[in-house]
Amino acid sequence: QVALSRTQVCGILREELFQGDAFHQSDTHIFIIMGASGDLAKKKIYPTIWWLFRDGLLPENTFIVGYARSRLTVADIRKQSEPFFKATPEEKLKLEDFFARNSYVAGQYDDAASYQRLNSHMNALHLGSQANRLFYLALPPTVYEAVTKNIHESCMSQIGWNRIIVEKPFGRDLQSSDRLSNHISSLFREDQIYRIDHYLGKEMVQNLMVLRFANRIFGPIWNRDNIACVILTFKEPFGTEGRGGYFDEFGIIRDVMQNHLLQMLCLVAMEKPASTNSDDVRDEKVKVLKCISEVQANNVVLGQYVGNPDGEGEATKGYLDDPTVPRGSTTATFAAVVLYVENERWDGVPFILRCGKALNERKAEVRLQFHDVAGDIFHQQCKRNELVIRVQPNEAVYTKMMTKKPGMFFNPEESELDLTYGNRYKNVKLPDAYERLILDVFCGSQMHFVRSDELREAWRIFTPLLHQIELEKPKPIPYIYGSRGPTEADELMKRVGFQYEGTYKWVNPHKL
């Protein structure tokens, strides 16, 4: 086992960053958080920038500027975001240094004079007029057009580079997404736009490419001749908990499936790229999406959770019991969808996408189930092999396979070949997804960000279904809070070829 401390991990990262040409360590950078008073800024962006600063992973002359409508001070920003920093008493001095680099400007999102004030403020910072500028839009999409237009007109660096990070949702359907994309691309070049999907920053999602293309053993079996089906799962054990009003506007397909799960599907299904260059990788992902037809209604199961009468606390409440959810809402909190990649490698292999709230566990994984062994000599005792990439929690890679049961006879039983990170790298604290992705933006690497043509294809696949749901308002199937979801989803999976045995229990190697 390799035991690495946080300091050692960050030392390795620093070495990698400083050796590259793309990370300008000594240049002045300004990180501007648009929507600095909001939840995302408070819980994710400010803490992430602090962790990067604490670990010495930001360029040395980096300033952080918050911008929002609320009249706040840096002290206010500190008060609301610091509880999420997880700072230790030993880091007190470092924390003071961090907040000394912070400033805040209040202004409207659609007022040109406010942006001119913001620009004057940035120019007044040390070497601010020639600094590289990175704008993070932690804002609702309704203000994107006004904000990007004003940034472009008043706040661009004339000497350094300018980059803009856009948070999902990128529209509600193909038409609104196209409108937003066309607007942003009329102001910024594609190499300046970073559409963030934080799932692409997760260690195991990034590991998929290495697993596939750096190991000879997987190449020959990664196709329709050997793989019976692919299941991509995202499960949350909690409901909307008072935030249903926002969720109800989008629903589970827009929230998770059309982005996170579809991105994971691309990494499983794509061909080997010409290189690890950002556009070479994204070219292959677009090719996969172009091979997927629009979702067919007979390959869809929609569910909505109801309270568990035997549960406790939140578990007793259904989705419609959330006071922020519109009365009688038919918005799905669970969806199972089957897609097919219609190309030579994957023809006929079902890709089953499942996601839901208020389920029995927290889990995100990719599961490849292989065909049955031909010419069975073990009297149907063999179960199908599976390769599982567990994204969260407890990152893991393992192969479910058959071995001989101890004893006199040739009785096979299920076991696993474990390729888990935790076994080799004991207690290594890896940077989280937002840390990686923000560092990628500083480096100018777009590999783990969504390109406009990729986004367009993703919406093309799901828009007809979303429009049909909005028009017909089908009643989702009720499922109990804390269950596996509607049984109809299991029946759909069985119908397209997935075999669920229920006889195997994964042993978490992190707890051995």
Rank of each mutant, 00 (worst) to 15 (best):
D255E: 15
M257S: 05
Q258H: 11
N259Q: 14
N259T: 15
N259L: 14
L261A: 07
L262P: 02
Q263S: 14
M264A: 10
L267M: 14
A269L: 02
A269R: 01
E271G: 06
K272R: 10
K272H: 11
P273F: 01
A274V: 07
A274D: 09
S275P: 00
N277Q: 09
S278L: 04
D279C: 08
D280R: 09
D280W: 05
D280F: 06
V281L: 10
V281H: 05
R282L: 05
K285R: 15
V286M: 13
V286F: 15
V288L: 09
V288S: 03
K290D: 03
I292M: 10
S293L: 07
E294T: 09
E294A: 09
V295F: 04
Q296I: 05
Q296M: 06
N299A: 08
N299R: 08
V300R: 03
V300E: 01
L302T: 05
G303L: 00
Q304G: 01
Y305R: 00
Y305E: 01
V306S: 12
P309Y: 15
D310V: 05
E312G: 05
G313N: 10
E314C: 10
A315R: 09
A315G: 15
K317N: 05
G318L: 00
G318E: 03
G318D: 06
Y319L: 02
P323M: 09
T324Q: 11
P326D: 06
T331D: 03
T331H: 02
A332R: 02
A335I: 02
A335S: 09
A335E: 02
A336H: 06
V337G: 15
V337C: 11
Y340W: 06
V341A: 03
E342R: 06
N343M: 03
N343Q: 04
R345T: 14
R345L: 10
W346S: 02
D347V: 06
V349G: 01
P350L: 01
P350M: 00
P350S: 01
F351M: 04
F351Q: 01
I352V: 06
I352G: 02
L353Y: 01
L353S: 00
L359R: 00
L359V: 06
N360D: 14
E361G: 15
R362W: 02
R362A: 09
A364E: 13
A364H: 11
A364C: 08
E365T: 07
E365V: 04
E365Y: 05
Q369L: 15
F370Q: 04
D372T: 02
D372S: 07
A374V: 13
A374D: 12
A374G: 15
I377Y: 15
F378D: 02
F378Y: 05
H379E: 10
Q381P: 15
C382S: 13
R384H: 15
N385S: 09
E386N: 07
L387A: 03
L387P: 01
V388T: 13
R390F: 03
Q392C: 10
E395Y: 14
A396T: 12
V397R: 03
T399N: 04
T399M: 10
T399I: 11
K400Y: 12
K400S: 15
K400E: 06
M401G: 03
M401H: 11
K405V: 15
P406L: 15
M408Q: 14
M408C: 15
F409Y: 13
F410N: 03
N411P: 15
E413C: 07
E413I: 06
E416I: 15
E416A: 11
L417D: 05
L417T: 13
L417C: 15
D418V: 05
T420E: 11
Y421F: 13
R424W: 12
K426I: 12
V428L: 12
K429A: 15
L430T: 13
P431S: 09
D432Y: 07
D432K: 12
D432C: 15
A433W: 12
R436S: 14
R436G: 14
L437H: 14
D440M: 05
D440T: 03
V441D: 00
V441W: 01
V441T: 08
Q446L: 07
M447I: 09
F449W: 15
V450G: 08
S452E: 04
S452Y: 04
D453F: 01
D453G: 01
R456L: 10
R456I: 07
A458F: 15
W459I: 11
W459M: 14
W459P: 01
R460N: 08
R460W: 01
T463D: 13
T463Y: 11
P464A: 05
P464C: 05
L466W: 05
L466H: 15
H467P: 02
Q468D: 13
Q468E: 09
E472W: 06
K473F: 09
K473T: 05
K473Y: 05
K475M: 09
K475W: 10
P476E: 00
I480F: 13
Y481L: 06
Y481R: 13
G482M: 03
S483M: 06
G485W: 02
G485P: 03
T487K: 10
T487M: 05
E488K: 13
A489I: 08
D490H: 12
E491W: 07
E491Q: 07
E491V: 12
E491R: 08
E491K: 07
L492T: 03
L492F: 08
L492W: 05
L492K: 03
R495L: 06
R495C: 07
R495W: 07
R495Y: 07
F498I: 15
F498V: 15
Q499V: 08
Y500N: 14
E501G: 04
G502I: 10
G502N: 14
Y504K: 13
Y504P: 13
W506V: 14
P509F: 14
